[in-house]
């Protein structure tokens, strides 16, 4: 029996050239290099040959086997590359389509302003102190030097509740009494933030409820010069280091002397614009030296202790800083407003 290795090689290489994908390739490998392949069958007959023929037969058979294996490797690489390329092409995406954003949550603008105020006063040693929103008439007015029917009560339009002498606090000032009574005779430096309520029409400029931040410092050596210095430092931190401040006399029943602090308009640098109504100044907060009656009601002897207090509207400050024209935006919670902060 003679074996035509040349024919086997020729047939196999022709069949390999026809294999177009990795499945056909695998099929070819089984057919041409597998156990039952003609080449393998032929090589299996080696032992049956006469001794003198064996060497040449074996050499030739192995040559063919190696050639086929080499050809298989080449074809395998070629087809593998082609298949990968086509798989990658099929998996292409449109990188110009929008990204998958997780959505950043935001804090309410009032919270953001409150936090800036907290941070500035924290550096000056003021801690946060909070107290209740539904208050007694006595805490909201009486102990703050406004006995019943006092004319100064006209300054606050008050929501009364159906419970006698229980009101919605008109300012965070009742907290002054709470904190003094709690901490007397320690010195005090606190910030009193919170929601307050006024009997007012809801308009672009006024709300029935609003945030307020008060500050209170009580000690043995506190002066109006300290008040001016502290609040000017605050204005510099919040509005810019160069901003000027000025203090006008005003009246609050719970402070004396009392003042209003104006800050140079940061919109127009004091030149006059619609925001400051051409005055060059913005009214930012009310302040003053704690009234002796209030100190006394808090447990501090006004002959030994003095203190200052101030109060501001963080919403008004937010409005000025962001040119917000309508205070009703704050509690309307329209995302188109909130997402701008």
């Amino acid at each position: 029996m003679s074996t035509n290795f040349d024919q086997i090689e020729k047939d196999a290489l022709e069949a390999l050239a026809a294999a177009a994908d990795s499945a056909a390739l695998e099929k070819w490998r089984m057919a041409c290099l597998g156990r039952s392949a003609p080449l393998m069958a032929a090589l299996g007959t080696l032992g049956t040959l006469p001794k003198e023929e064996r060497k040449a037969f074996g050499q030739r058979g192995n040559q063919v086997k190696q050639a086929l294996e080499r050809a298989f490797e080449e074809a395998s690489d070629r087809i593998g590359h082609a298949e990968l390329a086509s798989a990658l092409a099929a998996g292409a995406i449109d990188v110009t389509a929008p990204g998958r954003r997780r959505g950043r949550g935001r804090l309410h603008p009032a919270t953001q302003t409150l936090r800036r105020i907290y941070a500035i006063f924290a550096e000056m040693g003021f801690q946060i102190y909070r107290s209740r929103e539904v208050e007694t008439d006595e805490l909201n007015f009486g102990l703050l030097n406004m006995p019943p029917h006092h004319p100064a009560r006209d300054m606050w339009d008050t929501f009364y509740t159906t419970a006698p002498n229980v009101i919605l606090r008109t300012h965070t000032s009742p907290g002054q009494i709470h904190v003094m009574r709690e901490r007397c005779p320690q010195p005090i430096r606190v910030i009193l933030p919170g929601m307050c309520y006024r009997y007012e029409q809801i308009t672009a400029r006024s709300e029935i409820q609003f945030y307020q931040v008060e500050g209170l410092a009580v000690g043995r050596h506190i002066t109006m010069a300290d008040l001016k210095g502290t609040l000017t430092a605050f204005a510099h931190a919040l509005f810019g280091p160069g901003v000027r401040t000025r203090f006008r006399s005003d009246h609050f029943p719970f402070t004396e002397p009392s003042a209003e602090m104006d800050v140079e308009c940061f919109v127009c640098d004091g030149r006059g614009c619609p925001v400051c109504k051409q005055s060059g100044w913005l009214e930012i907060l009310g302040c003053g030296m704690v009234h002796p009656e209030v100190l006394q009601n808090g447990g501090y002897d006004p002959r030994e202790f003095s203190g200052f207090a101030f109060g501001m509207g963080p919403q008004r400050i937010t409005m000025l800083m962001h040119k917000i024209e309508d205070i009703r935006y704050f509690f309307a919670n329209d995302l188109r407003f909130l997402e701008q902060f």
Binding site: I188, R220, H221
Partner: peptide, 15 residues
């Protein structure tokens, strides 16, 4: 009020 100087709190810090 403008003639009152501006100083920072010299008081001891509260606990």
């Amino acid at each position: 009020y403008a003639r009152i100087p501006e100083t920072l709190l010299g008081e001891v810090l509260p606990p």
